[in-house]
Computed example of a mutant assay.
Amino acid sequence: MSETSTHALSLAHVVREPAPGANPPGTRAPLLLLLHGVGSHEGSMAALAPAFDPRFLVVSARSPIVLGPRAFAFFHVTFTPQGNVIDRDEAAAGWAHVARFVDEAVAAYGADPSRVYVAGFSQGGIMALAALLTAPERIAGAVAMSGRLLPEVLPHAAPADALRDKPVLVVHGTDDEKLGIHLARSARDTLSRFPLALTYRELAMGHRVTQESLDVVSAWLTARLDETA
């Protein structure tokens, strides 16, 4: 169950504490940062928190740009027949903000800085990939659910050695009506050129989180924790 945070960090957020006794005494909890899609809010991802490994401290953050009541984003995007048009400056500020917020959350909640995972849906997934590629020293792994890889990120990607073996999961629906499957396949092909540990899954679904896709993400994250236990 998520609770409103008592820490005033740079992004509003809600928290699910690790289960009592889930982590060995004297150890810091791993951190899972959840990022929502454009036009949504932190509550949409916080609702998924019970599905994730009880060892995680789960933080669901609200994007900083206000679009309307209970509607937020990291950057403005316009959907056109020719493709999605984004505000590039806002996007760059967004992925930098994610990295900065990771530092804030680790310090505020006493999480393990070596086991920080960022998982997002749609625009949140875009930010998760961008943050990992540009700030891998802060992030152990990333999950993109129904997202894409912004070409604008690539000139800012960290050196290959800093990205080596960083685990990345891309999950996308073959029937995605908002961010077509071709965007996920393009992301897969581009990410494969980096020395990442990439897992790619296509599922029969649209632009949404299903129980099947959530199970894939949860199992993948648990496996990452088991590797570093």
Rank of each mutant, 00 (worst) to 15 (best):
S122E: 05
R115T: 04
Y117H: 05
A93D: 14
R88S: 10
G120K: 07
V106M: 01
M127I: 02
L154D: 08
G147P: 00
R148M: 11
Q82T: 15
V98Y: 05
I126D: 03
D112C: 03
F101A: 14
G110W: 00
A73Y: 11
R138H: 09
L132Y: 09
F74Y: 15
A96G: 12
M145W: 07
Y117G: 04
A111S: 06
R70E: 07
V77L: 12
A128W: 07
L149I: 13
D89F: 10
V77Q: 13
D112V: 05
E90L: 08
V143T: 10
Y109F: 15
V106I: 10
V85C: 01
L132T: 03
M127D: 06
V143W: 01
P155I: 14
Q123S: 02
F121G: 04
E152Y: 09
I86H: 02
F79D: 07
A99C: 11
S114N: 11
G120F: 11
D89L: 03
V77K: 06
P151N: 05
T134R: 07
E104P: 14
A73C: 14
V85I: 12
Y109P: 02
P69K: 00
P136C: 07
F121L: 14
G147R: 02
L132Q: 05
A144V: 04
N84E: 15
F74Q: 10
Y109I: 07
A130K: 10
T78F: 14
D103W: 12
L163P: 08
V143M: 08
R148P: 01
S114L: 05
A108H: 06
P155Q: 13
A128I: 11
D87L: 07
L132G: 09
G83M: 09
P155N: 13
R70P: 00
A160I: 04
P113A: 03
D165C: 04
V168Y: 09
A157W: 13
L154A: 09
R138E: 00
E137S: 15
Y117M: 08
V102S: 08
T80N: 11
E104Q: 14
R138D: 02
Y117C: 10
A158L: 08
P69F: 02
R148N: 09
A131E: 03
V118E: 11
F101D: 01
A140P: 04
A130H: 15
R115S: 08
P159M: 02
P69M: 07
A157H: 13
A131L: 09
F121R: 02
V143D: 03
G120L: 05
P81T: 12
E90A: 12
M127V: 10
A158W: 14
A92S: 12
A96H: 14
D161R: 12
Q123R: 01
P155R: 14
P81I: 11
G141V: 07
P136H: 04
D87C: 11
N84G: 02
A135P: 06
P113Q: 08
P167N: 06
D89R: 12
P151S: 09
Y117P: 00
D161Q: 14
H97I: 00
S114C: 00
Y109W: 13
H156M: 12
Y117D: 01
I139F: 01
D89I: 15
L150N: 04
G83E: 11
Y117L: 14
D112L: 06
F74N: 07
R164F: 05
A105Q: 05
